[in-house]
Simulated assay, not measured.
Amino acid sequence: MEEDLRIRYEAILEINGVKVIDKLVADLLRKIKEKGSILAASRSLGIPYSRAWEIIVRIERLTGKQIIETSRGGRGGGGTRLTSYGSRLLELYSRAEEKLYRLAPSQSMRFVSIEEPDVIVAYSHDPLLEFILGDLERNNYRVEGLCIGSSKALATLALEESDIACIHLYDPVTKTYNKPYIEKQWFSQEVVYLGGYLRELVFAIHPNIKISNIDQILEKIISGELRIACRNKGSGTRNYLDYLINDYIGKHGIESINIVGCEKELYTHTEVVKKITSGKADVGLTIKHLAVSYGLKTIHVTWERYECITLKEKLGKKPVIVFKELLDKKYLSKYIQELTGYRLD
């Protein structure tokens, strides 16, 4: 028995007592730096692509800073690389690891290989889409879903690290959804629309808050009178919230801004409504379906376009074909009839 026991030492980088980087995370960052791809890095380490994204999102959430950035094409080619902050974190960890190994060398970690998914879907959080992904799995396809927000989802498709991206990014200049952001990624000619739907975006309000219109909400958010539950930067909902706030500030010439709540970013609409329900926030921009499900008051903001896209070269993949069939209006209507705040496009 005793001969099976081993002591292993491991460096850990913490922020305010919370673990941020351990050996697995450091190895992932090193592989991203080496290969210029999150997908290639995750495969090299034998961990699911979705797990790699969970690690990245968690670090960015804890630190409040980006640790990776993506690009497609252009001088030097595209890919994923560490930001200066991400590189700094890895450097700090590597120094600690080197010092530890000089004192107590440890065995390297082992990772269990996993079965390759049939399809990778990167998306912005949406309950209806998750029903559709469940149906895709029931068609006997191995589905890897990455709930990482619209901007990151689009980036994974541009880098060909996902098969499908489902997004809702509003452009205030053209007053349209998604297309301007696809064009910025330099691959608009390669993108194929699979289908989509409309969902109602609302301000969800705690029952104890007395307020009657959007202008009052924005005024009190900007002054700090209302605590807001904020989605993460890069999500379609956060983009729209920033647009609403900046538009209100511009129209009213406001100079003093004291927004309370956005320092803590939330990665799903469920987190937003739970924070309001618990009394830790007063208001939040979210989808009506979940706000009503949690018994919150709502004020209508807009109907937004939620769309799923793929690349021409991926259209022949059987799970992509089936996914497109699941987005057919005849199929969607059965769900939309049961879900508040959705309608066919």
Rank of each mutant, 00 (worst) to 15 (best):
L157K: 12
N140E: 12
L103C: 08
E144H: 09
N178Y: 05
H125W: 01
Y170I: 08
F187A: 10
I120P: 01
E98I: 07
L136H: 03
E160N: 03
E97W: 02
V121R: 04
V143I: 08
V121N: 06
S188V: 07
V121C: 06
S188M: 10
P105D: 04
W186I: 07
E115H: 01
K184D: 09
H168N: 07
A122F: 03
P127A: 02
L157M: 02
G145P: 14
D163Y: 05
L129M: 07
E98A: 14
T156K: 10
T156P: 15
F187W: 06
Y101K: 15
A122E: 03
Y181V: 08
E137F: 07
E116P: 11
A165Q: 11
D126F: 00
P172E: 11
N140L: 07
E116G: 01
S113T: 05
K152Y: 13
H168D: 01
G134D: 13
E97P: 04
A96N: 02
K179F: 05
Y141R: 01
F131A: 10
T156F: 07
G134C: 04
T156Q: 10
S162A: 14
Y101S: 12
A165G: 11
E161Y: 07
K99M: 08
I132S: 08
V143R: 02
S151E: 15
I120N: 03
G149Q: 04
A165I: 00
S151F: 13
E98G: 15
R142L: 02
Q107G: 14
Q189E: 13
S150L: 05
K99W: 03
H168A: 05
L146W: 01
L146H: 06
C147Q: 08
E144S: 09
E137P: 00
D126T: 01
P180V: 07
T174C: 14
F131W: 12
I132C: 07
L169Q: 06
L159E: 00
E183G: 00
E115C: 06
S124D: 14
K179P: 01
R102A: 12
F187K: 11
S113Q: 05
Q185Y: 08
I148S: 07
T156D: 01
Y177T: 05
A158E: 00
E137N: 12
E137G: 13
E183K: 15
P180Y: 02
S108G: 15
N139Y: 13
E98C: 11
N140C: 08
F131Q: 12
K175P: 00
E98S: 15
L103S: 07
A122N: 10
G134V: 00
L133M: 11
K99C: 07
H125T: 11
E183H: 07
S151Q: 13
F131N: 13
A155I: 08
N140D: 10
T174L: 15
K184P: 00
A104R: 09
E116R: 04
K184I: 05
N139K: 14
S150M: 06
S151P: 14
D163V: 10
C166S: 13
Y101D: 02
I120M: 09
L136Q: 05
